[in-house]
């Protein structure tokens, strides 16, 4: 028996928004530690890793490990039936071929349940090596979304260059060039509004704007986002999900021919 009840059901709706543009289907792996999902997009350019810890749920029960393959388009349709204020419970029997989503209104006067067919997905989790990144940049998530949107107008690719002075995002295309420089914040009232750079060595890498824009669908999950870069390895874009976990996106860089 698997059962996970989330008081703040809107979080699951936001998680869905953060996944569905990149992934058509994915396995939700449930254990007594929580729920994990790891999947690559169809072109194997990016990888999404989601972790929702058991302690973050109001109620959590997982008698035996199970992997639920879900069509994310279908799951998204179902979660759209939940109100933002609803409490969401995900339930499945052991070895079941369906999963049930239960939505309760806050005052319990409306309860809906939706049963969805599971899929057989033969997915394996890849090990992600521990990496000491040459640069990590924390910035407001809304700022990062804005930068990705603005620079996408100029070209398909964006260069992210990090030095101790700050971080520069640049894109070049037919209409010209756009450059956005962010300096490390000298003084901030709120932690989540800060730009914080930790740098061992300067790094400059090129990434596809299309994927970066997809990652920013997670913006509503967190006020800040962390970018981690090292030469020639995938960029990590991490959004923490309050009190419960994180979603991390890995994006392979573009290289000069």
């Amino acid at each position: 028996m698997f059962e996970a009840r989330l008081l703040q059901g809107s979080l699951l709706k936001k998680v869905m928004e953060a996944l569905k543009e990149l992934l058509n289907e994915a396995a939700w792996d449930c254990s007594d530690a929580g729920i994990q999902l790891q999947a690559m997009d169809n072109s194997h350019v990016s990888l999404v890793s989601l972790n929702l810890r058991a302690e973050g749920f109001d109620k959590y029960r997982c008698d035996r490990n199970l992997s639920m393959g879900m069509n994310l388009g279908s799951m998204s349709k179902i979660l759209k039936c939940a109100s933002n204020e609803d409490i969401i419970t995900i339930k499945a029997q052991d070895n079941a071929d369906t999963v049930t989503f239960v939505f309760e209104s806050p005052d319990q006067d409306k309860v809906s349940d939706y049963e969805m067919k599971l899929m057989n997905l033969d997915q394996e989790h890849l090990g992600i090596p521990e990496t000491d990144y040459a640069c990590t940049i924390r910035l407001p998530s809304s700022e990062f979304a804005r930068i990705c949107r603005d620079l996408s107008q100029f070209g398909e690719s964006m260069v992210i260059s990090c030095t101790k002075e700050g971080v520069r995002f640049s894109a070049t295309g037919d209409i010209g060039t756009g450059n956005i420089k962010l300096a490390q914040s000298a003084k901030v009232d709120k932690e989540e509004e800060a730009v914080v750079i930790e740098m061992q060595e300067p790094v400059s890498l090129t990434f596809a704007c299309r994927y970066l824009n997809s990652f920013t669908k997670a913006t509503s999950l967190s006020k800040s986002v962390q970018l981690s870069m090292s030469p020639e390895v995938p960029l990590v874009v991490e959004y923490k999900i309050e009190d419960i976990g994180h979603v991390r996106y890995y994006l392979a860089p573009k290289i000069e021919d």
């Binding site: 990016s46 090990g127 992600i128 090129t206 390895v233 995938p234 392979a252 573009k254 290289i255 021919d257």
Partner: peptide, 14 residues
């Protein structure tokens, strides 16, 4: 022109 690489460096579980 820069060409897109694929995700590498992640290992298959043993």
């Amino acid at each position: 022109m820069a060409s897109q690489t694929k995700i590498t460096g992640f290992y298959r579980p043993t």
